[in-house]
Amino acid sequence: MTPDEYCAQKAARPGSALYYSLRFLAPEKRRAATAIYAFVRESQEAVRDCSDPDVARARLAWWRMETLQAFQGKPQHPVAQALAQVATHYAFPQEAFQAIIDGVESALLAAGFPDFKALQRYCHRVGSTPAVLAAEVYGYRDPRTLKFAHDLGFALQLTDLVLDVGAAARRGRLTLPEDELADHGISIRELASPPAKAGIGQFLSRQIERCDQLYTQALGELPLVDRRAQRPALALAAIGRALLDEIRGDPAQVLTALIDLTPLKKFWIAWRTWNFG
């Protein structure tokens, strides 16, 4: 398996949102964008199911060194090898990938987010940073497009956290603001062990509303001149909003169910976005 094939298996499997969002992109750009998101996935998975914090930190330290090797030497991991092949061409800043690892590590050390500001810092590192890198790959003429990418990455990351809140709670982690959860009288145990109490639906509806606001803000920031180039990002946004629509009527279903769209629906959304914007 080549590094590019490994990255595709890791981050853009057939049927995934990223697969369809990048489906119509030029192959060289698709490989570069896939490598970015595979790096994010590898960083997160390095610690996701690790019960020993010291082992998790050691894994992230290894990834820090592997990132250095991707830019300066001979990386061992296929994701780092794929990055090494595209980093120079797209002038990726090494610091951006270190920032992604910083975000993963910050969530690991805190085991949650005490408030929205802490959650925002995490999303900016792990969601916005790769989205801005991907926007560089897709291409732009107006620098305001990078602000669009930054805010869209935040919206997409927060959407993922909302959809994953139940599974994360069962792993002993809280992916949404603790103070807001406390305001609704909800504990992490109640997220992990439904049936859901009354306040959970209201709490999750607030998070959905927040995601909606972020999508609206980001989409309003995209200059018209770059709309065509940024169609992969727009397709991801459309799929993310469609996922929110799936839970809007019953937000508490995210506590027990894996929410997803059918591959056909994702394909249709991506095709419509690519052809009609």
Rank of each mutant, 00 (worst) to 15 (best):
E178T: 08
T88A: 11
A169C: 15
A84S: 13
F71Q: 14
P93Q: 09
L152T: 07
E105L: 05
A169R: 07
Q76M: 09
A118F: 00
A155K: 00
C123M: 03
G73A: 06
G185E: 11
T67C: 13
Q69Y: 10
V137H: 06
V162E: 00
F71T: 14
M65G: 14
A167F: 15
Q72D: 15
A149T: 07
A167P: 00
P75W: 01
R141L: 14
Q69F: 07
I101W: 08
P177R: 03
E178Y: 04
A84F: 00
T175K: 05
H77F: 04
L68C: 05
L181R: 06
T159P: 00
H184E: 06
D164T: 13
K147E: 13
D179A: 05
Q98L: 11
Y90E: 10
S106L: 08
A82Q: 04
A82E: 08
L174F: 07
H184D: 01
S106F: 05
P143T: 15
T175V: 15
G153R: 03
V79T: 13
L174T: 01
A82K: 02
Y140W: 15
A107F: 13
D142I: 13
Q98H: 13
L174V: 08
S106D: 12
E95W: 00
Q69V: 00
L174P: 00
Q81T: 08
S187K: 01
A169Y: 10
Q157K: 05
L68S: 11
D115V: 09
F92E: 09
L109A: 06
A110C: 07
A168Q: 12
V104I: 10
R170P: 00
M65N: 07
Q81F: 01
F116L: 13
G185V: 11
V132M: 14
Q94M: 10
R170Y: 11
Q98P: 00
A111P: 00
A84L: 03
Y90S: 11
Q72S: 13
Q120Y: 02
T67N: 04
A70L: 10
Q157W: 00
A131T: 07
G73H: 06
L68M: 10
F116M: 09
A70G: 14
R141Y: 09
G112N: 06
V162F: 01
P143D: 10
D115M: 06
L152I: 08
P78C: 05
G166H: 12
Q157G: 11
L108S: 06
L176P: 00
F113G: 01
R173Y: 15
A149C: 14
L156R: 02
Q94F: 00
V79N: 08
A155D: 01
L108I: 06
R125H: 05
P93G: 12
F97E: 03
P93M: 04
F92Q: 07
C123G: 09
R141Q: 15
T175E: 09
V165R: 02
L109T: 08
Q76R: 13
D164Y: 15
G172Q: 03
Y138N: 10
D102L: 11
D160Q: 07
K117Y: 02
L158G: 02
P78L: 03
F97H: 08
G103P: 10
V162Q: 01
Q120A: 04
S128E: 04
L109P: 02
